[in-house]
Design a protein around this nucleic acid. Structure first.
Lengths: 192, 192
DNA sequence: TGTTATAGCTAATTATATTAGCTATTATAA
DNA sequence: TTATAATAGCTAATATAATTAGCTATAACA
C-alpha cells in the first residue's frame, strides 16, 4: 500500500509503453519499473499475469477507439459522418501505433472476447448507416468493407508500408470516396 | 551432421507449426523438437536466433503469397484478373492463418524489409492494372486500397471477427465489385 | 588415409514470468 | 484510541525459453 496502483493506471501505463517504446517492451519487468514497483506486485492487480494484462489492454484500446469515433460523429450525418468516423479511426491508429497493434494482435484465436470488444465500434457504423436507404444485408456488407479497409490501411500505413511518395492522405480519400460511391449506387442515385 | 537440416526445411516446418499450432508455438524449443534436434543446433542455420527465423518466415510468407497470386492471374485480364488475385490473397490467408499473421506482425517498426517483401505482390497489382486506362497516381491509390482492404478483411475474417451470420463471401464480393466500379468510373474521365 | 569444416551436442548463462510466503500500511470496528 | 483484518507491495525461489561456449563426431575431400 504504497504506490497506490489500480488496474486503470497500470493499463494506461502499458498503453503508453506500447505506443512510445513498442509492444516488445510491454513486459511485466518494464511495466513494473515504469510504475516504480517490482514485477510480482502487478499480480495483485492482474491475477492472470501478462496474459490478462494484454487482454485488458486490447479491450481498453477498442473502447478508446470507440469513444473517439463517437465523438467524431457528433453533429454529422451521412457521408460527412462516415468520413469523420473513418478519419478518427485512422488518426487513432497513427497516434497509438503500439496500442493499435495490441488491439489486433491479442487474442487471435479466441474470437469471443475480440467480437465483444469491437461491437461498440460496429454499432456506431450501423447507426451512421441508418441515415441511408439500405437493407440490413447491405449494411452488413458495407460495415465489413469499412472495417476491413480501415484496419488494413491503417496498419500498413502506420508501419510505413506505403513506400510510394504519393500522398497517403489522397489515397485514403480516394478509397473512402470509392466506398461512398458504392453506397450511393445502392440507393439508386438518391441525394447524398 | 545427422539430421541434415537446411534453412528451407526449418522455415517450412516453422510455417507449418504457425498454421497448425498458432504463432505462440513458433519457438526454438518446439521447432527443434519437431525437427528432431536440440534447440541450440538451430543457431547453426540461423545465426540471429529466433529473431532472424521470424524475419525469414515473414519473407517466405510474402514470397509464397506472391507466387499464389501470380498463378491465379495467369490467362486472365482486367476485372477477372483482379478478382482472381484478390481471391487468391484471401484464400492464402485462410489456409495459412499462422503464417499470414507472421507476415503482418513481424518487423513492425523496421519497414525496409517489409517493403521489399511486399514489393512482388505490389508489382502484380500494377501489372494487372496496366490493362486499364489509368494514370500512375490513380494506380497507386487503387493498389493501396486493395492492399489495405485485403489485409484487413482477411485478417478479421480468419480470426472470426465477422460475427454476423450473413455470408462473408458475399461481403467480399460486394467489396470487390465496389472497388471495381470505382476503377470503371475513373476510366470515364480524362484525368483527375 | 589424413585433414578440415561443421552440424549437432551438452552444459552453462541470461532473461522474464510466475509462485510462495512475509510485512507493513491502510482501513475498519470495538 | 486501540485492536484487528485486509491487502499492496516486497523478497526469495522456481520454471521456461533463448542464447552462448565449447566439444565431438561425421561428412567432404585432398
Amino acid at each position: 500500500m504504497k504506490a497506490g496502483l489500480s488496474k486503470t493506471t497500470i493499463i494506461e501505463m502499458a498503453a503508453n509503453i506500447a505506443d512510445e517504446r513498442g509492444i516488445a517492451n510491454v513486459t511485466l519487468k518494464v511495466l513494473a519499473a515504469e510504475l516504480g514497483v517490482k514485477s510480482p506486485s502487478l499480480y495483485k492487480h492482474f491475477n492472470g499475469g501478462l496474459d490478462e494484462l494484454n487482454k485488458e489492454l486490447m479491450l481498453y484500446g477498442w473502447h478508446s477507439l470507440e469513444s473517439k469515433i463517437i465523438t467524431a460523429a457528433i453533429g454529422k450525418a451521412k457521408d460527412d459522418a462516415i468520413m469523420a468516423v473513418c478519419y478518427a479511426y485512422r488518426n487513432f491508429a497513427a497516434e497509438h501505433k503500439g496500442l493499435f497493434e495490441v488491439m489486433q494482435w491479442y487474442n487471435m484465436y479466441q474470437s469471443e472476447e475480440h467480437l465483444k470488444a469491437t461491437q461498440g465500434m460496429v454499432s456506431v457504423f450501423f447507426q451512421v448507416l441508418d441515415a441511408y436507404d439500405l437493407n440490413e444485408g447491405q449494411k452488413v456488407h458495407i460495415v465489413r468493407m469499412f472495417r476491413g479497409f480501415l484496419q488494413g490501411f491503417s496498419s500498413i500505413e502506420s508501419h510505413g508500408g506505403y513506400g510510394n511518395p504519393l500522398s497517403v492522405n489522397d489515397s485514403f480519400d480516394f478509397a473512402l470516396k470509392t466506398i461512398l460511391n458504392g453506397i450511393h449506387d445502392l440507393q439508386g442515385e438518391m441525394e447524398r
